[in-house]
C-alpha cells in the first residue's frame, strides 16, 4: 500500500522458515556476506550471492516489499556503472570503445563497476531480507546476549522500531491532505509534504522517547525478555555453515588476491556502449523524475 511505499524497510510479520531462524544466525550470514563481498572481486561469486538472497524472498513471503526496498539500488547502481565506463577506477592506459557526444567510453572499468555493484546488491539484499524477517526486539535481545554495547544496540533497536511509526506517519498525513482535497497520488503526493512529515516525525520521536524512558528503557540492571528467542540445533547449523562457507570463501579470495577473474571475461565494445546507455538513461530518468515531482508542487 501507499504507506509501505515510502519506507519499505520494516519487518513484515510472518511465520516462514526464514522468520523463525534465530537472529544471531541471520546476523552471522549478513556479516559473512559483507566480509565476503568486500574481500572478493569475483563477479560470479558476487552475483550468486545476490541471487541466493533474492531466492530467499519468496520463501519468506516478502518478494514485493523486498523488490520495493531494492529500488534504491537503481540510481546508485546505474550511476556507478556509467561512471566506471567514462572514468574507470583502474590505471591508465584505457582502451576507448566508442564515443557518445563529448564522452569517450572505455571498457577497462566495466568489470570493476560490476564488482562494486555486486558488492552493494548482494550485501543490501541479504540485509533487507534479515530486517524484513526479524522482530526488532528479538534482535535486541540476541545482541544484548552477545554483549554488544548497550548504546549501540539501543540505537539499532530504536531505529528499527521507529520505521513503522514513520511509515504510518506518511500514510496518515497523506489521508489528511486528501480529505482536504489535495490532488495527486502516490509518491508525488508525499513529496511536497516531506518537510512537515519530517518535523512531525521528530516531534513524535521525542515524545516516544520520553514515554520509553519513563518505562525504564535504557535503565541499568538486569533485563528480561518477553519474546523468548531460542537457539535450536538448526539455528546452530545455519550459523556455523554460514560462518564456515562465507568465511572460507573470503579466505580463499584473499589468498587468491581478490580472485579477480576479469582476464577470463571479455566485454565486447557493443556491450559496454549498451550498458552505458542503459545506466545513464536510468540514472537521469530517476533524477529528472525527482526534480519534476518537486517542481510540480
Amino acid at each position: 500500500m501507499s504507506m509501505q511505499a515510502a519506507l519499505p524497510v520494516a519487518m513484515i510479520p510472518g511465520n516462514s522458515i526464514i522468520h523463525r531462524i534465530n537472529p544471531i544466525a541471520k546476523l552471522v550470514w549478513v556479516v559473512g556476506y559483507v566480509v565476503l563481498a568486500f574481500s572478493t572481486q569475483n563477479i560470479v561469486v558476487l552475483y550468486s550471492m545476490a541471487l541466493f538472497a533474492l531466492l530467499l524472498a519468496p520463501i519468506a513471503g516478502i518478494t514485493k516489499p523486498l523488490l520495493k526496498g531494492a529500488l534504491i539500488l537503481v540510481p546508485v547502481g546505474s550511476s556507478l556503472l556509467a561512471l566506471q565506463i567514462i572514468a574507470p577506477a583502474v590505471e591508465r592506459p584505457w582502451t576507448p570503445v566508442g564515443e557518445i557526444g563529448p564522452l569517450t567510453l572505455y571498457g577497462d572499468g566495466i568489470y570493476y563497476g560490476f564488482v562494486l555493484l555486486g558488492r552493494i546488491v548482494a550485501s543490501l539484499l541479504l540485509a533487507l531480507v534479515m530486517v524484513m524477517t526479524t522482530h526488532p526486539s528479538d534482535l535486541f535481545t540476541s545482541l544484548s546476549k552477545l554483549k554488544v554495547p548497550y548504546t549501540l544496540n539501543f540505537m539499532l533497536a530504536m531505529t528499527l522500531q521507529l520505521i513503522p511509526v514513520f511509515q504510518r506517519e506518511v500514510g496518515i498525513i497523506m489521508s489528511a491532505q486528501k480529505s482536504r482535497g489535495m490532488k495527486g497520488k502516490g509518491f508525488s503526493a508525499v513529496l511536497p509534504s516531506f518537510v512537515p512529515v519530517f518535523v512531525g516525525a521528530i516531534e513524535r520521536v521525542q515524545q516516544l522517547s520520553i514515554s520509553l524512558e519513563s518505562r525504564g528503557f535504557g535503565s541499568n540492571g538486569i533485563k528480561t525478555s518477553y519474546r523468548q528467542v531460542r537457539g535450536r540445533p538448526s539455528d546452530w547449523v545455519i550459523g556455523i555453515v554460514g560462518a564456515l562457507a562465507l568465511g572460507g570463501l573470503s579466505a580463499y579470495s584473499i589468498w587468491r588476491g581478490t580472485w579477480n577473474i576479469s582476464s577470463d571475461i571479455v566485454f565486447s565494445p557493443l556491450f559496454v556502449v549498451v550498458t552505458f546507455v542503459i545506466s545513464a538513461t536510468l540514472f537521469f530518468g530517476v533524477v529528472l523524475f525527482a526534480v519534476f515531482l518537486s517542481l510540480k508542487k
Binding site: I172, I173, A176
Partner: peptide
C-alpha cells in the same frame, strides 16, 4: 475532523 489532530496537521 480527525479524532487525533496529529493525524491531520502538517503545514509549517
Amino acid at each position: 475532523v480527525f479524532q487525533n489532530p496529529n493525524h491531520q496537521l502538517f503545514a509549517r
